[in-house]
Amino acid sequence: MEFDHTWWTFLIRWLHVLSGFMWVGLLWYFNFVQTPSMPKIPDEQKPAISKVIAPAALFWFRWSALSTIVFGLILAQMNGYLTEALSLGLTDNVAKHSAIGFGMWMGLIMMFNVWFIIWPNQKKALGMVEVSDEERPKAARRAGVTSRINTMLSIPMLYAMVSAQNLY
């Protein structure tokens, strides 16, 4: 085995996929498990989620989102298709670049949502920053809907990523 360009590209792809598993795994945990379970939990037990589990999950969630994007952009540059993919393949009419490009843009939108909408609003909703009683449910709703948008986008995003590798 040689530590050549192929090996380093593989290493970055592995780190990209590892980070992505943690990110989307936690995203699906929030949407498929935690949020639907909250109404079934007695009020006196809810702080276990809102004060302990959710803040810990959100920590790994936002940092794995960032590392997925950083490793992904490095990988695209190492593979030589960063600008073609970000142009959605419109500059060279290559389906592989179009597919990976759609995935990259959806990933970038999802990471923006995590850092600039979900996380700031979750801090308000979970009481990690002081807000009025009026503002708290609004922040929770904003975080919840944006998290659902990311869950929706994860479906075509993963199709784009996997199809770019295997179909095109």
């Binding site: 949407n31 959605l88 592989k96 179009s98 759609f102 809907v145 659902r148 986008l153 075509p156 784009a160």
Partner: peptide, 30 residues
């Protein structure tokens, strides 16, 4: 009604976007 209010609506919306995206990819790569 917002389709994102339910998990099934969220998944169906994701699948619809996937189909639209595949059509666009094939059109661009043709």
């Amino acid at each position: 009604m917002n389709p994102l209010d339910s998990l099934s609506g969220t998944i169906i919306s994701g699948l619809v976007i996937t189909v639209i995206m595949v059509v666009l990819i094939n059109a661009i790569g043709a």
